[in-house]
């Protein structure tokens, strides 16, 4: 199951639309990080609007993917988490720690651009 990674100017846009197996999630992580390097991306958005389950494994993979992207030098935002998913993750004691999140793709885009200009030394 390949998750498309779209390039939009200086950022990469991905949207997880299917229920991922653990292997799918790890492949996605690898693909996205390679795409960050190949495209010299300033930031990535991972939209999870379509996910109705994020268990501890996927939460960890998403969390780590965002951290890894940052280590590579790109900013990362996760957008569109469903309220039921947020509720379940917090009840389980798992949160996306240290990751920028946004309520939807629109706000995710704004947040990402702000993070990128902040890192570039802007306001």
């Amino acid at each position: 199951m390949k998750i498309p990674v779209l390039r939009l100017k200086n950022i990469l846009l991905t949207s997880i639309q299917v229920d991922l197996t653990d292997e799918d999630a790890l492949n996605f992580q690898e693909d996205l990080l390679k795409a960050v390097q190949i495209n010299d991306a300033d930031g990535v958005i991972i939209d999870i609007t379509a996910l109705d389950v994020v268990d501890s494994f996927l939460a960890r993979v998403l969390n780590e993917t965002a951290v890894m992207a940052k280590i590579l030098g790109a900013e990362a935002v996760i957008s569109g988490m469903q309220p039921d998913v947020a509720l379940t993750l917090v009840e389980m004691g798992r949160e996306l720690i240290g990751v920028s999140t946004a309520i939807n793709l629109d706000h995710g885009m704004e947040k990402l651009q702000a993070l990128i200009s902040k890192r570039a030394g802007g306001v």
């Binding site: 653990d22 109705d52 389950v53 994020v54 268990d55 501890s56 494994f57 469903q82 039921d84 998913v85 509720l87 379940t88 009840e91 389980m92």
Partner: peptide, 17 residues
């Protein structure tokens, strides 16, 4: 409700993993 549906799906996911 949808929250309980998500709780159960998530719990099953953890246990079967």
């Amino acid at each position: 409700g949808s929250a309980d549906q998500t709780r159960l799906a998530t719990a099953i996911s953890e246990l079967t993993r």
